[in-house]
Design a protein around this nucleic acid. Structure first.
Lengths: 332, 332
DNA sequence: TTGTAAGCGTTATCAC
DNA sequence: GTGATAACGCTTACAA
């Protein structure tokens, strides 16, 4: 027998506890996990020893045996958009509340980073994934055999998902714009290869069509929408009287462009954003926008994932949650 | 002998590889880790087997043996402030680049959540901590015996830290305000129990004093600065001609308040923010602000932490990095 | 009710 | 160069 001495620290193990309590490690394990029979006095002995040694079970060893890590991974496209940051804040809260930990995986829409993370999920026995990034490799995720919940996407019937009712959001915005008399309307939208963008467009256009209004759409990048593109759109449509933007950030850029073209908001043109980010209510003018229930979405996603991890049934497998029009100062 | 069948999945292990390659697990391990001698042909055999089985080493087992998890924890006060979100985005990037993973720990200034996480750090053999939250329990962190790097705080000489030169930031702002002729100046600052806030104040006040200008400071919460408090300050100081804010968010609220008091920016009053958040350059008016080098800070923190993990020496143990005044449209 | 020991998937020591 | 095998810290089947 030899002794591998690759530790300098002092963390006590289950053996130390067993020794101090004069019992076997099995007994200690039983009291920790509240499983199997253990005499009430023995139990106290063990508890005392744990207390005295300041013992915390090593989760890695546990994980190795049980093939569960109590780690949840969240895959996001980026962090520096308020919408995602808030989602993450909620997700972290619910995750830790349920005694899981959170690994942040920022795909940045980079396939290489995504691959790296896909490997990591295997390596660490990640228990579940909350997928917020758009991905072109949903099959690779499925192959992992790990429970997944999607937010803002629905990449297949077999993966539970939750998202805002984007169709409704588009309708809400269009109805508002039409009802206040807008007739030349522009939709500054996100990349139209995203389902959420298409759904918003569909809802939006359905209302315009009913009212015989032509829709002009321009695709923009969500992460870094080009201010000059937006300015160009604004300039080349001097008769535009209503703009629907797929994010509040785009709306802010649009407002900026409108102002520097000398157009008044909302007198000359009404603007509606999407998301209801914190800053929207604090700008001048305050932004009218479609609010997404981010807290609800996050809470549902975490809870659904944990149900899946525990092999419980998920009742509505896909959820579509209501959005709200928040009327402020950028619409008449 | 019996067989514990608590797995349904198909992940292959080092044994499977060994079997397929007709070698021992030891040899496979040597190949994987490029340690010790292994015949070039044997090596290829193993590599083929790995390929065929799609084998990835289980990091949990590795971690258990090595007492290293290749997981870094980052402890933040919250995520929904652009400053922190961007820090996190960079930190995640550098972390994964160096082949570590990131656990997000959102203390939310809640001692209970912090306690929970402190235990988790032990349980998972976390390799290192990036501490951004303010904490009152630095000793508990130290007891962990895990490398730590602090951002924005310096809670002791023995923990390496990096932060903006806040004193310089305060001076820069004051110099600008004074140079454009402001004489009745207000400092809307963060909570003055934070060192960073005091340092900014000190720098700011030093310049005002030199110029025989009285300083009025108001403490605000960073996470949720009260718009009404800010409005009150603005209203009760109608002769104020310059405001220095400890965050861009506070500056936005101040501008809002000034506008609704009918004061023009920058004609009547100049405003300077802090941080240079993304939206600052896009608002109307564009915000003059003190920019913090967040990328540099994040990069340094991650690299320093990994050096500590590898027991390398850290040359400047504490770093103070330059900030910049970004002049835009809210100052004359 | 408790203890013994195998096993989770690795790494590293030592013998061959 | 390679293979057995102890060990990491834990859980659990089974024996006592």
């Amino acid at each position: 027998m030899y002794n591998v001495t690759h530790r300098g620290d002092t963390m006590s193990t289950i053996k130390d506890v067993a020794k101090l309590a004069h019992v076997s490690v099995a007994t200690v394990s039983r009291v920790i996990n509240q499983k199997g029979y253990v005499n009430i006095e023995t139990r106290q002995l063990v508890l005392d020893a744990i207390e005295k040694l300041n013992y915390v079970p090593n989760e890695l060893a546990r994980s190795l045996f049980q093939k569960k890590s109590r780690i949840i991974a969240v895959m996001l496209p980026h962090l520096t958009a308020y919408y995602f940051a808030e989602l993450l804040e909620y997700i972290e809260t619910y995750t830790i509340d349920q005694n899981y930990r959170l690994m942040v995986c920022n795909s940045q829409d980079d396939p290489e980073k995504e691959s790296k993370y896909l490997r990591i999920f295997d390596q660490y026995n990640i228990d579940g994934i909350i997928l917020i990034s758009n991905t072109h490799r949903i099959d690779d995720y499925k192959k992992l055999g790990i429970p997944i919940v999607e937010i803002d996407h629905k990449l297949g019937e077999d993966i539970p998902s939750i998202q805002s009712n984007n169709y409704q959001g588009g309708k809400l915005a269009a109805n508002k714009l039409v009802s206040i008399g807008c007739r030349k309307i522009i939709h500054l939208r996100g990349p139209s290869d995203l389902v959420i963008v298409r759904e918003r467009s569909n809802g939006f256009n359905s209302v315009l069509k009913e009212n015989n209004i032509i829709n002009f759409s321009y695709d923009l990048d969500f992460r870094a929408p080009s201010p000059t593109d937006i300015a160009n759109v604004v300039k080349s449509n001097p008769d535009c009287d209503g703009i629907f933007c797929d994010s509040d950030y785009i709306a802010i850029l649009a407002i900026q462009a409108l102002k520097s073209s000398g157009r008044r908001i909302p007198e000359d043109v009404s603007v509606i954003g999407f998301d209801d980010i914190e800053i929207a209510s604090v700008l001048t003018p305050k932004l009218t926008t479609i609010s997404q229930p981010r807290k609800l979405i996050s809470e549902y996603a975490v809870n659904a994932l944990i149900k899946l991890i525990n092999k419980e049934k998920l009742d509505p497998f896909h959820r579509n949650v209501d959005v709200k029009l928040i009327e402020r100062d950028t619409t008449k």
